[in-house]
Design a protein around this nucleic acid. Structure first.
Lengths: 232, 232
DNA sequence: CGCACGTTTGATGGACATCAAGGATTGTGG
DNA sequence: CCACAATCCTTGATGTCCATCAAACGTGCG
C-alpha cells in the first residue's frame, strides 16, 4: 500500500485530527501494516506493548480474562479506533486481547518511533487524551449500569451503544453489522447467556428486536429499547 | 503562597514528571489557589469545565449521580491527583462532583492557559495520558469486580484498594485515615449499606477488621482480606 | 432531654444464576 | 443427499444471594 493511500486512511482518524499533510505523511511512512484474519488476535493480553495500532478496516472485540479465568468483553472497536496505544504510553503489558471479528487491517508504530512523532506533532497528544477520556466516560457509565441497573436495562443499553457505534440503518430498523452471540452479549452485560436468551426471546415476541431470523441482530423499535434502558 | 512553595508542591506530581525548573515555575505562576473546606464540593457535576486542578493537600471523594438519582462513588483522590483535567481536555462538562473529605487545597489552571503550557512542555501530555491510562485500568478492574464477584469479595477488594492508596500502618494493623460510612462503602461496592453492615459485623467478630471502636476503620488481618477478595 | 443520623439485625421476597435437557442450525464426510 | 458432530440457542425447574422492608439501638448535639 502506498503512502498516499495510508494518508487517506489516517486523515479521518480522531487521533490525528488537525494534523497537517507533513505530519500525516510522516506517520504514514513510519507505519507498519498488520493484517489480522477473522477470528485471530492482534496480540495477547500480557504481551509487552512494543507497538501501538490504529484500526484501518474491520471490527475487533476487546476481551479480558480475569485471574479466575472468566472472560469479559471490554468493548468493540471499529475503523479509526486506537488499539493498544494506552499500554504503549504507559510502558505496561497489554491489559486485554483484541480479537478480529472480521478480516482486519491495522497500521502500527513502534513505541519509540511513535513517541518521537508525538513530540514532533503536539496535537496527537491532545487528541489521544480526548480519546482516552472518552473511554473513561464509557467505562464509568458501564460501571454505573452494572452497579445500579438490572439485566434487562443493561442489555438494552448495550444494544443501543453498539447500534450507536456501528449500527447500519435498514428499512427494518437498525442492524448491528456483525455476528453477536448470546454469550458475547452476556459477557458485555455481566450476566449469563441464559438470561440474555430469555430476554431477547421476549423482545423478539414483542417485535422490539429481530434476533432469530438472521445472524445479524436488528433493532426494530429503538425507542422501545431506550424506554427499557431508561426505566429505573 | 509564593512561587517556590508551589513549585515544591508540583514537583512530585506525576502529571509534571520530568519537567525542568522553568516549566514548573511557569506552571506555578499560572496556577490559582483553590481552598475547599471539608464537606464542600470543588465544583458540580454538569458544570462547564473551565478549570482543571491538581490536588495539593487533602482527600476528595468523586461522586456521580445517575439519571435516576442514585449516587455512586467513582474513586477517591489524594495529593498529587488530577481533578477535572480530563473534562477540560475534552471540552465537556464535568462528569462528576469532587467532595472534600478533609480541608483541601488545589492548584487550578484555566483551560486555555493550560493548553498553552501543555503545548510548550510536551512531557505534560505524555504524563497525562499515562495517568488517564491508569484510571482506565482501575475502572476496568472495578468493572470486572462488579461483574463477576460477590459482595463480600468486592468489599474486601475495595478496602484493600483504599488501604493501598491511603492506608497508614499502625501497631493494630492498617488504618484507613478518613471517615468512611457504611453508605460510602456501599456506593463504592455497588451494594446497600445493610449488606455492608452485616459483612463488617461478621469481620469484626472474626477479628479481621475493627470498624466499631473508632471512626477510622482498621484492617487487622490484611492477608485474610486478600484471601476473601481472591476467593472465587 | 429529644431529635437526627448512622448503624445493627431480623424477616421476607425477588431477580437472576445455576442445573438440566432438549431443539435448531451449520458444516463435514461418506 | 443423508448421517453425524459440533455449536449455539431455548426453555423449564430449582436454588441462593442479596435487596428490600421493618424496627430497634446507639451516639452526639442543639
Amino acid at each position: 500500500m502506498d503512502t498516499e493511500t495510508r494518508v487517506g486512511l489516517l486523515k479521518p482518524v480522531g487521533l490525528f485530527r488537525s494534523l497537517n499533510g507533513a505530519a500525516l505523511t510522516a506517520l504514514a511512512e513510519a507505519a507498519r501494516e498488520h493484517v489480522v484474519p477473522r477470528g485471530e488476535a492482534m496480540f495477547q493480553q500480557g504481551d509487552e506493548a512494543t507497538h501501538g495500532y490504529v484500526l484501518a478496516w474491520g471490527r475487533v472485540r476487546l476481551d479480558q480474562v480475569t485471574a479466575e479465568g472468566q472472560n469479559i468483553v471490554i468493548r468493540h472497536l471499529g475503523p479509526g479506533d486506537m488499539v493498544g496505544m494506552v499500554a504503549v504510553f504507559r510502558r505496561m503489558p497489554f491489559p486485554a486481547t483484541p480479537v478480529a471479528l472480521e478480516d482486519c487491517m491495522a497500521l502500527g508504530w513502534g513505541a519509540g518511533r511513535f513517541a518521537e512523532l508525538m513530540a514532533a506533532y503536539p496535537p496527537i497528544a491532545q487528541n489521544a487524551i480526548a480519546a482516552v477520556g472518552g473511554r473513561i466516560e464509557e467505562l464509568q457509565s458501564r460501571l454505573q449500569e452494572v452497579a445500579t441497573q438490572r439485566v434487562e436495562q443493561r442489555i438494552a443499553a448495550t444494544l443501543l451503544r453498539l447500534a450507536n457505534q456501528a449500527g447500519r440503518k435498514t428499512d427494518a430498523g437498525v442492524e448491528i453489522p456483525f455476528a453477536l452471540s448470546r454469550q458475547d452479549l452476556a459477557e458485555m452485560t455481566a450476566t449469563t447467556l441464559h438470561t440474555v436468551s430469555r430476554t431477547l426471546s421476549a423482545w423478539d415476541q414483542e417485535g422490539v428486536v429481530d434476533s432469530r431470523r438472521s445472524s445479524h441482530l436488528v433493532i426494530r423499535q429503538p425507542h422501545r429499547l431506550v424506554e427499557i434502558a431508561g426505566h429505573a
